[in-house]
Design a protein around this nucleic acid. Structure first.
Lengths: 124, 124
DNA sequence: GTCATTGCAAACGCTTTGCATCTGT
DNA sequence: ACAGATGCAAAGCGTTTGCAATGAC
């Protein structure tokens, strides 16, 4: 199923950064694409459920979305512009599993994000 | 500065789990402690700023708080009851720094949480 | 008496939902 | 014609804030 849903996926694919629903909405609108905020939210939710985009939460609780590869990976994210690099972390995967098992926790999972300021972003 | 702020810290210290502001508020009220929701939020914010409690965000964006040791550490968290174990992860620290540097990101930071179901929680 | 803290209710920001309309097949 | 997608406005939910009342020293 599709429509302006394509537009959203397209907008996400064009960026290598995590974007918020509100940002995407504003960008699409100011680019002349007529679209409703609710549609953006619904599309992002659908895409996230399907595993086509990754979701993460800002410190303030806002959800950020990014078009991502399907296999398991983590992110290196610029705190300033949001630019993101996918990184593999096999060693970390194994560490997380070992930690869980050692403490008697079953069904292990983990979240890992690395932040920094990318080289294209100004000093302060 | 203190008052029912002590009560909140006390309630947090008694638990080894991450709790939400709303949960803490409900618990204190039903325990007969008169307190306002805004006070709970303000106290938690102050404690977090002072580094006396750790904060993390639920998948749904809710903030969870836990009394924590002061030095850097990560958490192994039960998805069912919230019970949390602090874990060291020196290898992961080094890995995160290396990843950031390798991609030209400065001022590196990272978040790492490990989730599971603790041995005291039922199969489901 | 002074100044920070508290409590309540109102305001906020992000997200979701109800519902009527529209679109694609 | 039908099932699903859309848009809008209203509702929801966690969190924050304005302000008058209260409490600590």
């Amino acid at each position: 199923m599709t429509r302006q849903r394509d537009t959203i996926l397209e907008a996400l694919t064009a960026e290598d950064a995590f974007r918020s629903a509100q940002e995407l909405y504003a960008d699409l609108r100011s680019a002349g694409t007529p679209i409703g905020l609710a549609t953006v939210y619904r599309a992002l939710q659908t895409l996230a459920d399907a595993g086509d985009v990754d979701v993460l939460r800002t410190e303030s609780g806002e959800a950020l979305y990014r078009r991502c590869g399907t296999r398991h990976h983590h992110h290196l994210i610029c705190r300033s512009c949001g630019k993101t690099v996918e990184v593999a972390a096999d060693a970390v995967e194994r560490w997380a599993q070992a930690v869980a098992r050692r403490h008697g926790f079953r069904d292990p999972a983990h979240t890992v994000e690395v932040y920094g300021i990318c080289r294209d972003c100004p000093e302060s």
